[in-house]
Write a protein that binds this DNA or RNA. Structure first.
Lengths: 111, 111
DNA sequence: AGGATAAATAACACTCTCGTTATTTAACCT
DNA sequence: AGGTTAAATAACGAGAGTGTTATTTATCCT
């Protein structure tokens, strides 16, 4: 299928899953458990969309599926947004610098 | 309604409208004329979504509506994507630098 | 082998989205 | 006033997206 990344992130639940995975790998069951208002199959289907859009990877481990974030999948999106940066007013440049600095700091930390 | 920005950009037609407006202000009719496969009402409703999501502004001029891009509307999206930057592998840092440089160069040009 | 566990898929209902055509609203121009 | 133009809205139908419960698939464990 190779679902569109723009579509994949349009759903709040799927964004929440991505945010969760930003904190590290998770088993499918642990992800599903985080969403109290949704059933296991519902979350499973969201994971399928994220898989097909290339935003997450799966590793099979016995009965479990370990999901990991694939940040490279966001490259297209980032490139698309970046196109508009030049049009942003100066006030937003400050935000950009702030975020860049934060990202850089985080990257330097020992893992 | 204040539609969600993530939802607004999930539609290819709406992204095409934004890309068009990145080139400057356009009358509603001129925008609609660009989409040969769509009718005027269809485009009008896409414009409504973009309006409600804060991604475009409208100026009334007699019977015409002049649409302009509101790049600040993309701030939330940019912030969201930027969160993941720190997780990107080094290969993507190059892309980031490239885009930053390009945006900076464009910003410096006389208007 | 047989039961338990983990997660995906099947089948179905409901809603939302997107398209259409027809109409309305509003301002312009003789 | 009356007609024209520009764009939004109304009403409706088709298809897609998301949720549910029930079931299947696959692996583990005794």
């Amino acid at each position: 299928m190779t679902t569109d990344v723009f579509f994949a992130i349009s759903d709040p639940t799927r964004r929440a899953v991505l945010d969760l995975l930003a904190g590290g790998a998770r088993k499918a069951g642990d992800i599903a458990a985080k969403f109290l208002d949704l059933t296991q199959p519902a979350v499973s289907r969201h994971l399928k969309v994220l898989r097909e859009s290339g935003l997450v990877n799966v590793e099979v481990n016995a009965q479990q599926r370990i999901y990991t974030l694939n940040p490279e999948g966001l490259a297209d999106l980032y490139e698309w947004v970046a196109k508009y940066q030049a049009l942003w007013p100066e006030t937003l440049d400050a935000l950009e610098r702030y975020l860049d600095a934060k990202a850089r700091a985080k990257r330097k930390r020992p893992r």
